[in-house]
């Protein structure tokens, strides 16, 4: 009896406090960022031509190096934003940067590289977007960190700034190499 009364009277308050706490916590979350289920899984298979020399490339090229795989396109405004950072960090030889040119016009892509710089070791071209689906790409730019065995270890969504590089990507890469 007592318990019932307590529940009846106190329940609204308890629910209210619970919801408040949850919302408070919710303010610090990032609802629009979707974690990739590919983390700690081998990189998906692909067979794509190189933008510059049409040579076929596959996921086996990833093995033996720590790789930063950057998905970009010439039509993507945010990609231009991060290009200077990528060019700067490409000086670092502990890892290779591979580009994945996503649903792009090849001529535009080449022009774009001349304009903004080319930090990439090689650039794979995915004109249909099918390979990008395998990578779970949903918006450019996206960047994957892949270890020497070809396992995906980290995914960053959005343009990479110098801060992002120093604070998030660099530690991940250093741990792997």
């Amino acid at each position: 009896m007592r318990l019932f009364k307590l529940i009846r009277v106190g329940l609204p308050m308890m629910i209210f406090l619970g919801v408040m706490l949850l919302l408070w916590r919710g303010l610090t979350l990032h609802p629009a960022q979707i974690p990739s289920p590919l983390i700690n899984k081998p990189a998906p298979q692909y067979r794509l031509p190189n933008l510059l020399n049409k040579k076929m490339m596959t996921e086996r090229d990833l093995i033996g190096h720590v790789t930063l795989l950057n998905v970009w396109a010439s039509w993507c405004e945010a990609c231009a934003e991060e290009q200077s950072t990528l060019v700067a960090i490409s000086q670092n030889k502990n890892f290779q940067i591979i580009g994945l040119d996503y649903k792009d016009n090849l001529a535009d892509a080449k022009k774009w590289l001349q304009q903004y710089g080319n930090p990439y070791e090689v650039i794979a071209v995915d004109q249909t977007g099918n390979s990008a689906i395998d990578w779970g790409v949903y918006g450019t730019p996206e960047t994957f960190v892949i270890d020497k065995k070809g396992i995906i270890r980290y995914k960053y969504i959005g343009p990479i700034s110098m801060e992002v590089w120093e604070d998030t990507l660099r530690p991940v890469i250093e741990k792997l190499s």
Partner: peptide
């Protein structure tokens, strides 16, 4: 409706799946 709307936040807050 409250549960449906807030549940994704609950799971994310608990670091479970999204």
């Amino acid at each position: 409706i409250v549960i449906g709307t807030l549940y994704p936040i609950v799971l994310e807050a608990l670091n479970l799946e999204k």
